[in-house]
Design a protein around this nucleic acid. Structure first.
Length: 330
DNA sequence: ATGTGAG
DNA sequence: ACTCACATA
């Protein structure tokens, strides 16, 4: 998931409160550079989002975790007037609006945005005239700004998946391939294509991954699927592909063979589901991360990684009812 | 080595 | 929360 704002909806009776708290959070992070306030607003928004009852006053909201006097006052103002003076100011502030435009570009964060504004570049249109001020990632982000903001229909990912499977399969049938993220969770559309691969010749005991990822990326370049490269290391490729019309963000990560299923679980998400499952694991005396699952003894020191031959194994270890990917949309 | 950014 | 890749120094 990227830095785009995701309006909170479906079944959240406090969604309008969450939206303005989220907007305040973004402001604190991107403009004011106050990560603590950013976290505070996010925490309050998340409390409100999971609260099943619509709050009628700031006072009532103060019972919730993460909501103090300051946020309670803002809720009261919003309930009373339907808006927030602070937010009106922010929306009218030149620096603030400029930063919000520039950070739409993948690779441009608050820091780079402020630097550009110092040089008088405050809009995307201006930016297009000054590509020389951007690094490679940012140039690609700008070039495909509109495409990258579009959601990808499930059917298109299915087609891209079949190309990836046949191309990588013809390279070497021993590759495991799974497209994770919201696509694996059965969503109708996704923000990007997050592909995990593994190969028996690369395990966690091998320190170097040889040229496995490179060979895969080259193959997908040759067949014309991959059209841009953003970054490329031994185990992670970031770039873009195009099958029809729009250019789409594509990530490919190579994971050690023995850590494949933990990685697939992790990158399938959702974030909230992962959080919940890791908490459950801890309760049952296990620690679970992107790489492995380990028993954690009474001393608190984790043991050796346990053998995992499929995703279900992980659920079984921690005695957690198995959830199909479609059931992980928390 | 450190900061930025993505996920 | 944590890791990877990159761009500087």
């Amino acid at each position: 998931m990227s830095k785009r704002k995701a309006p909170s909806k479906d079944g959240n009776v406090n969604s309008d409160f969450c939206d303005f708290l989220q907007e305040l959070a973004e402001y604190e992070k991107n403009v004011a550079g106050n990560i603590f306030k950013y976290n505070a607003y996010r925490k309050a928004a998340s409390s409100l989002a999971s609260h099943p009852v619509r709050v009628q006053s700031g006072k009532e909201a103060m019972k919730l975790d993460g909501v103090g006097k300051k946020i309670a006052d803002k809720l009261d103002e919003f309930i009373k007037t339907g808006e927030l003076q602070k937010l009106k100011k922010i929306r009218n502030d030149d620096t603030s609006t400029a930063i919000n435009s520039l950070v739409r570009v993948s690779g441009i964060g608050p820091s780079k945005a402020k630097e550009l504004i110092e040089e008088g570049i405050t809009t995307i249109e201006e930016l297009r005239k000054h590509e020389d001020k951007l690094n490679h990632h940012q140039i690609i982000g700008l070039k495909y700004l509109e495409d990258f903001e579009e959601k990808i229909p499930r059917e298109e990912i299915e087609q891209i998946e079949s190309v990836i499977r046949s191309e990588i399969g013809s390279l070497d049938p021993q590759f495991n391939i799974t497209i994770c993220g919201s696509y694996r969770r059965g969503k109708k559309e996704s923000g990007d294509i997050d592909t995990l691969i593994s190969h028996p010749s690369f395990t966690s005991s091998d320190k170097k991954s040889s040229k496995l990822l490179e060979s895969v990326v080259n193959k997908l370049k040759e067949c014309g699927l991959i059209v841009e490269l953003i970054s490329m290391g031994d185990v992670k490729f970031m770039g873009a592909c195009k099958l029809v019309e729009k250019t789409r963000r594509l990530d490919i990560r190579l994971t050690p063979f023995d850590q494949y299923h933990c990685a697939v679980l992790y990158f399938t998400g959702s974030d909230l589901f992962n959080k919940e499952m890791r908490a459950h694991a801890l309760n049952n005396g296990y620690t679970l991360n992107e790489y492995c699952i380990r028993r954690v003894g009474s001393t608190g020191t984790p043991g050796e990684p346990l053998p995992v031959s499929c995703e279900e194994d992980i659920f079984d270890y921690i005695d957690y009812p198995h959830k199909k990917p479609e059931e992980r949309n928390l």
